[in-house]
Computed example of a mutant assay.
Amino acid sequence: MNYKFDNLLKIALKDWPVDIDLSEIHYSKNDPSKYTVKGLGIMSDLISEKYIGSPDEVIFRNLHQSIYAVLHAAAPNVWAIKISNIRHASVRNRFEKHLKIGVENSEIGYSREDILLCSKYFHENSD
C-alpha cells in the first residue's frame, strides 16, 4: 500500500458521507466550551470499526479520529460541511501528532507491528 498521507486521506474520506450534519450541538452545562455534536461520535466509531484487526488499523483508526476532531472543531461555526471541504493540513497535523504519541508512549499499547507501520508512514512522508 502507498502510505503517502494524501493517498491515505483519499481512502479514508471515501468512508465518510459526502455531507455531514453538524447542526445539533449540545453544550455542557458546567463548561460551555465543551460540547457534543449529535451523531458525529457514533458515525466516527462506526466508520473506524471496520479497520479493527486489519494490518492498517493503527493508521486508519487514527486517521478517522483526526477527521472526527476536525469536524467536531468546525461544528460551532457551521450547520453542515462537505467532507471534501475539510482542510487536509488540519487532519494531517492531528494525525501525525497522535501517531507520534502512540509510538513514544508505551502505555498506549502500540504493538511492534504498529510501531513499524508508523515508522514506514513517517519515512514515506518525510518530504
Results as ranks from 00 to 15, higher is better:
87 R>Q: 09
108 I>H: 10
122 F>L: 07
72 H>K: 15
58 V>G: 03
33 S>D: 12
3 Y>H: 00
116 L>T: 07
79 W>M: 11
113 E>N: 11
14 K>G: 00
95 F>Y: 05
1 M>D: 00
127 D>L: 04
99 L>V: 02
49 E>V: 14
81 I>P: 00
67 I>R: 06
113 E>W: 05
58 V>A: 01
54 S>C: 09
122 F>E: 11
34 K>N: 12
76 P>Y: 11
24 E>D: 08
55 P>F: 06
101 I>C: 08
102 G>C: 06
80 A>H: 06
30 N>M: 12
45 D>S: 12
55 P>A: 07
32 P>D: 11
104 E>Q: 03
48 S>P: 02
123 H>K: 13
72 H>A: 03
15 D>H: 15
122 F>A: 10
92 R>K: 15
123 H>D: 00
96 E>S: 05
5 F>S: 06
67 I>K: 05
5 F>Y: 13
22 L>R: 15
51 Y>S: 09
111 S>K: 12
84 S>H: 09
94 R>Q: 13
103 V>W: 07
119 S>N: 10
89 A>R: 02
110 Y>M: 11
53 G>W: 09
3 Y>R: 12
60 F>P: 12
94 R>G: 10
87 R>K: 15
106 S>C: 03
23 S>P: 04
38 K>G: 00
24 E>W: 12
18 V>N: 01
123 H>Y: 11
108 I>N: 02
23 S>V: 04
88 H>G: 05
80 A>P: 01
63 L>E: 10
85 N>W: 04
7 N>A: 00
68 Y>V: 09
26 H>M: 13
92 R>G: 09
23 S>D: 07
13 L>F: 01
39 G>H: 05
68 Y>L: 13
105 N>P: 11
30 N>Q: 08
45 D>Q: 02
52 I>L: 14
10 K>W: 07
107 E>S: 15
111 S>N: 13
96 E>H: 01
33 S>N: 14
5 F>I: 09
88 H>D: 03
4 K>S: 14
66 S>Q: 11
5 F>L: 11
97 K>L: 08
69 A>N: 08
71 L>D: 11
87 R>I: 03
43 M>V: 07
11 I>F: 07
98 H>S: 06
14 K>M: 03
